[in-house]
Structures are given as structure tokens and as C-alpha cells.
């Protein structure tokens, strides 16, 4: 990595608002999003959650990172729709009716089953997108600090795993390359032969990971890990940005409770899709706008330098 480019990269990383947010704020936001996505069945509200998270991801310049998560999510969406369409025979609007197939009977594909699969897939996309946001916005050290106290050991293990996973992946690729340089061909044969050829790579990887784990443990031991009661160095203060997001989350929860009590967040797919009214639309729009507050703050932070010292 060229030094100048790296320096620029470092500076641009420093300038991002997402790094100033408290891990607790981000975790609260994501927990609420995931919880609501599991609770809501109405596609309008699921779509509002998805769009809100997508816009926050977009404003945080994480589109490139999100795209790989999205690809996996879309694959799952297709699988869910496929499985739902073939297994669920409910629904009044028949799109396709196959002749009788021995053992399976007549396959009946309905519009409602298709929509139900899409709705469930959308829920999965919300959860996957929230996970992506968690991975790139919440620093592993932040989780360790957040949990602190008695949960420190678990948090340290979690933080180390998150940090070491990319290192292990890099090790794996490097060892593969080294073996290729010794003439090992990992491509073009049957899966059995490829597996056999990958075993040495995994062997080296495990040995190297074990050595690294040992060295890390020794470094921890030398720095007094496990002495007893430890303190926590919390440098980041709660900024106005954190507080505004927490207020927005509270508003979202209040609005959601009101909508739930009115029964607006439920949706019946079978036997026919229920009708939707303008109340559903406006409810989803308000919910989405409140959840987009981090994105609005980030854009404001980028545009008006005076806001930087405040948010």
C-alpha cells in the first residue's frame, strides 16, 4: 500500500461520523431495527425498515461492503420464495397449475405464496443489512468496552475473533498461493481431489493459527491480563449525534407501539392479499424517516463543518 494513499485513506477514515458514534447507540439502533423486522409482517413496514437501513448504509459510504452482503441476501430471498411457492399451496390467485406428478401431486403456484416468500425474504434482507452495518460501524474494541466488567472475557474473545478472522482468511489465501508455487493445482479436478489438496493448506493454517494464538496469549499474560478487577477506559463522550439518534429510536418505538395497537403492522397474505390503505403508507413513511436520522445527521455533518463540533 503506497504511503501517500494510505495516509489519505487514514485521514478520510478519521473524518467519518460513524466512528464517533457510541457503540451503544449503534447497537440500540440495530437491535430495534432487527426486533421490528421480526415483529412486523406488513411488507410496507418491512420495506420502510429496509430502505431506512439502506439509506444509512449509503450515507456511511458502505455501499461496496454492503453489496457482497446483499448478494448473499438476494440468493436467500430467491431460495425462500422458491421453497415457499412449492411447499405452500394456499392462496386463491393461481398462477400455475402443473399436471399431476407422481409422488408430488399437482404443483400449485399462487400469487399470494409468491408475495409471502418475498415478504419473508425482505425481512431477511433487513437483518442481513443490519448485520453489515454492525460489522462496519461498531468497532470490536467498542463491544469490549461496552460489555466491560464481568462480560470482559466473552467480549475479548468476540473482539479477537472478529479481528483474527480476516487475518486467518488472509493466511489461508497466502498458504494456498505458496502451495500453488510448489506446483499444487487446486483447480480443474473433481471435488474429491481438490479437497485432498486443500488438506495440507488447512493443516498449515491450523498450525500457524495455533502459534499466533499462543503468542497473543503470551502478550496478554505479559500485560497483566486476568489479574482481577479491571477498569475501563471510556474516552468517547455521548455526543449530541448519539442523543438525537436515541430520541429518534424512542419515537420509532412509540410509533411502532401505536401502529401495533391499531393492528396496522400485520398483514394477511392468504387466502388473498389484504388491501392496503393510505394509513399503512404514511405510517411506514414516518417510521422510515425516523430511522433515517443517522443518515440525515451524517449528511449534515459532511455538508456543514460547524455541525461537526456539535454532532
Amino acid at each position: 500500500m503506497g504511503i501517500k494513499t494510505k495516509e489519505r485513506h487514514r485521514q478520510s477514515e478519521e473524518e467519518k461520523m460513524r466512528h464517533r458514534l457510541q457503540p451503544a447507540t449503534v447497537l440500540l439502533y440495530l437491535t430495534v431495527v432487527v426486533f421490528l423486522s421480526l415483529f412486523f409482517t406488513h411488507p410496507f413496514y418491512l420495506l420502510a425498515l429496509f430502505l431506512a437501513v439502506a439509506i444509512v448504509i449509503f450515507s456511511f459510504d458502505l455501499i461496496r461492503e454492503w453489496s457482497s452482503y446483499l448478494k448473499i441476501g438476494l440468493c436467500f430471498l430467491v431460495v425462500i420464495m422458491f421453497v415457499n411457492v412449492f411447499l405452500v399451496r394456499e392462496g386463491a390467485t393461481v398462477l400455475f397449475l402443473s399436471p399431476a406428478i407422481p409422488g408430488l401431486g399437482r404443483i400449485r403456484i399462487t400469487f399470494e405464496a409468491l408475495c409471502y416468500g418475498a415478504g419473508m425474504g425482505l425481512r431477511l434482507l433487513v437483518i442481513i443489512s443490519a448485520f453489515c452495518l454492525f460489522m462496519y460501524v461498531v468497532h470490536p474494541d467498542g463491544i469490549i468496552r461496552l460489555l466491560g466488567g464481568r462480560s470482559y472475557k466473552i467480549a475479548l474473545a468476540l473482539g479477537l475473533s472478529l479481528r483474527l478472522f480476516p487475518l486467518m482468511r488472509a493466511d489461508f489465501l497466502r498458504i494456498m498461493q505458496v502451495q500453488q508455487c510448489r506446483g499444487v493445482n487446486f483447480h480443474g479436478q473433481g471435488w474429491r481431489e481438490r479437497t485432498v489438496k486443500t488438506i495440507p493448506v488447512i493443516k498449515v493454517l491450523l498450525l500457524s493459527s495455533l502459534e499466533r494464538a499462543f503468542q497473543l496469549a503470551e502478550s496478554l499474560q505479559a500485560r497483566g491480563y486476568g489479574l482481577g478487577k479491571r477498569t475501563s477506559f471510556m474516552r468517547n463522550r455521548w455526543r449530541i449525534g448519539d442523543k438525537l439518534i436515541v430520541v429518534a429510536i424512542c419515537l420509532v418505538l412509540c410509533l411502532s407501539m401505536w401502529l401495533v395497537m391499531r393492528g396496522q403492522t400485520e398483514f394477511h397474505y392468504y387466502p388473498r392479499l389484504q388491501s392496503v390503505g393510505s394509513g399503512d403508507f404514511f405510517g411506514a413513511v414516518f417510521l422510515g424517516i425516523f430511522l433515517m436520522i443517522p443518515a440525515f445527521l451524517n449528511w449534515g455533518w459532511k455538508k456543514w463543518p460547524t455541525l461537526r463540533s456539535r454532532i
Binding site: 468497532h139 470490536p140 475479548l156 473482539g159 479481528r163 499466533r212 497473543l216 477506559f233
Partner: peptide, 9 residues
């Protein structure tokens, strides 16, 4: 192999 945390501070 000595760095435990992800952030310098």
C-alpha cells in the same frame, strides 16, 4: 502477534 485490540488507543 502481540496486538490484541483493533484500535491504537
Amino acid at each position: 502477534s502481540q496486538l490484541i485490540m483493533s484500535n491504537v488507543e
